[in-house]
Structures are given as structure tokens and as C-alpha cells.
Amino acid sequence: MELQGLHGQVVDRIGRSLAAEEIRAGQVLRLEDVQERYGVSRTVAREAVRVLESKRVVTSRPRVGITVRPLAEWNLYDPQIIRWRLASPAREAQLRELAELRAAVEPSAAALAASGAAPEARAALAGHARAMADAARAGDRGAFVAADAAFHRALLTASGNGMFAQLAEVTEELLVARRELALMPPDLDMAAVDRHREVAEAVAEGRPADAAQAVVRIVDAAHDEVERLLHGGGPCAYRR
């Protein structure tokens, strides 16, 4: 859930500084430093620190202060932390990690969905694939990304594995980031739609191996796109 209000703005500003290593691991801040740096009251500063503690980004101890934790200790699945890293010089590492996570999880989720998803879950996948096709034909990037994110959320949920389902927000951050970071090309690729349709059909027809392989094709295309971006190539047709 997006944080609202002044303390939410402070959390976001501090988080972006942390992700960019403008404030480094091991550095100790005082509450007064937060107040002065961001021009807020002690109450707002304390609430912002509390939120950062909940994300495991900092620890706060009496007579010690606010200590920045190493990146490895952060809650790296937190959508806001993902956004901070995608907006930072660590964007390349975050893109790779997200792509590798998808490759490890989504094929298994597809196989599980094909083995036991409820009829309404199978129908939802087909509906999201149709929405992707409609958006691609209309050239509507926003609608395309929304339908793509909904498809993968539905797939992870249809697996019946609650832990997989909770990774939907992580996948969604990657998909949305492509649009927000201007990583999408002018034209949307219908081949991406066809790959999603293949997944939906395999799930609907109860073909676990085919569903997993179809997702592998989606994830491989995504991985190739990320690697091109990381090595300085321009984005090609949107192939998720």
C-alpha cells in the first residue's frame, strides 16, 4: 500500500537516498538529523523511521540512533523498496534479480495452475490475455501493462500456492517499471500476446508441462530484453 501524507513523503525521500547509497549502510543518524534534513516535526520524523524499521531498512535504538542496515537485510520483496532500487544506480542489479526470480517461480506456478486451478481462475487468465490483445491493437501501453500485470497476478494466484501468490506485487513492479522508466518501445508486439494466450490455453486444458514451457518462453523473452538494456542496446518490441 502506498504511504500517504508527509511522513510517507519523508519515507520515500529517505528510501531513495538509501537505495542510491547517498546514505550508506552502517551510517548512524539521529532523529534530529531527519527533522533538520527534511524539514519536518519530530512526530513525522519518528513515524517515518518506524516505517523504515518495518521494512528492515534501519534499526533504531535509544542512545545509539538510527542505523542503516546492509542491503542484504532489507525486505527486498517490499514493492516500495523495489521502486527505490529501480530508480537508483542499482537499477541493473534490480532488473536482473527480478527477472531471475520470475524465471525460478512462474513456470512452476503455471504447472500448478494447469493441474488444479478452478474454472473461474482459468477463465480469468484467458480474459486478461484478451485484454492484452485489445490494448496492443489499440497501442494503449497503460492498458497493456495493466492487463499484463493482472495476467501474472492471476497466474501466481491460480497456482494455489500462497507464497507464490504473494510474489505478484514483485512481478507487477517489474512490469510497471518498464513503462514508468521509459523502457517500452513505440510499438507493442503481438507475439507477446500470443505467448500469454498459449499459457492461458495450456492452463485451461490442464497441460502442466506445456503451461510451464509457455511461461519459460515469456520469461526468456523478458530476460533477453533486460540483458539488451543492461548492455546498452535499445529496447526492441515489447515481448513479455
Rank of each mutant, 00 (worst) to 15 (best):
I82T: 10
L183I: 08
M1W: 01
P185W: 03
G15R: 08
D220P: 00
V49S: 00
A72D: 13
R61L: 14
M184N: 06
G160I: 12
D140Q: 08
Y238S: 14
A138M: 10
V176P: 01
L230Q: 04
D140A: 15
A126K: 12
E225G: 11
E106V: 08
H231C: 08
A165V: 10
P185D: 04
D78S: 14
G65E: 06
A72I: 12
E172N: 12
H7E: 14
S88K: 12
E97P: 03
T43P: 00
M132K: 12
D194V: 09
R63M: 14
R30W: 02
A113M: 10
G26H: 05
H231M: 07
M132S: 06
R69F: 05
A111I: 02
A87P: 01
Q94C: 15
D33C: 06
D210I: 07
A113I: 09
A111G: 13
A214C: 07
E227P: 04
P107I: 13
L230F: 04
L86V: 06
H196M: 11
L112H: 09
A211K: 10
R217F: 01
T67K: 13
E205A: 15
A19C: 09
A87S: 13
E32W: 06
V40L: 05
E120A: 05
G5T: 08
A222L: 08
M184Y: 01
A118C: 02
E22P: 01
V199W: 01
L230K: 10
R13G: 05
G8N: 10
I14L: 15
R85G: 09
A133G: 05
A113K: 07
A103N: 09
S17Q: 15
V105S: 05
R46I: 00
Q213L: 14
Y38Q: 07
V203L: 10
A48F: 04
A135T: 05
I14E: 00
E47W: 00
A118S: 12
E201F: 04
P107M: 09
E73A: 15
R102K: 15
A123N: 05
D194I: 01
D78C: 06
A131T: 08
L31H: 09
A214V: 13
R63D: 12
R24C: 11
P62D: 10
T43L: 10
V34S: 02
D33L: 00
A136P: 07
M132W: 10
L3P: 02
L167H: 00
A212H: 03
G139F: 02
G206R: 09
